[in-house]
Amino acid sequence: MSRPLILHAEPNDPLLDAMPDAEHMPVDALLPYVHRAEWPSVVRAEFPDDVVRRFAGRRVINRGFSYNGTRLRETLGEWGCHEQWCHRLLQPLFDVAGEVAHDPGLKGVSRSRLPLNSQWFLLRRERPDIQVPTFVYAFGGTRVDLHDFKNPMQKSIWSLFDWKEETHLPVSEQHWHRFFVERPVGTPVLMHFVGDRVGFVFPRGPMSIDEAAFRELAGSVSTTFRSRIGEVLSYVEDDGTIRFHAFSPYLLSVARQPSFRDDLRAAYA
């Protein structure tokens, strides 16, 4: 089987270091094939056969996500194009790939890049038995009733792993559509999955866990969020309840873990 192809937006994407033997393609390598088009068309890509062949049937790990910071995104921005046009340009390459690691597309539209409460909703729609945090999501500037919360904290719906104290609350979310969650109790468990391989990091030191339950959780997360690879934060409460907090495709917390790298190697052999 040919080695996997990592299409990335950032030069220091942690997966590049974790998979040095994979083929690495910066998305800007595709920029020469992208052209502005006359109305009613907007932009178009003319990928030569040799580029298309690099994707055809390959196992592609699409690490582009937003493409922010790339010259491709910048160029499309200069042309006044909505970000979706960027994703549309690349879709034909993903269409010929054998497999794609994540659901491509815009933040919040891609199933792999959902805000917190959407993640909890969709996961529970698949698996009503899964426990998730209690939250309240105000509409506009309406008042928030936190009476039923034991220990509420305000969070950004997009801030996946900041659960001690929110450090990523943008100004736009501070007073409008405010999002409050129950502060987690119990012990955090970080799990990675690569296909059906899983591994764990215990930030507070070794602990015993219900591995079968976690594996099942990983399977459900992988399906619901259309991702072959990911990191999952949960809290195990005193009575053993596993409370799913967040899935992230960004892999920032697990990329350096030896067990994660081993699983990547094995899964993409």
Binding site: W39, V42, H82, H87, Q91, G105, L106, V109, S110
Partner: peptide, 15 residues
């Protein structure tokens, strides 16, 4: 033209 491209964009998601 630019706004029309914006209107179209939302329909062209892969999903």
């Amino acid at each position: 033209e630019r706004r029309m491209g914006d209107f179209g964009a939302g329909f062209l998601i892969g999903q």
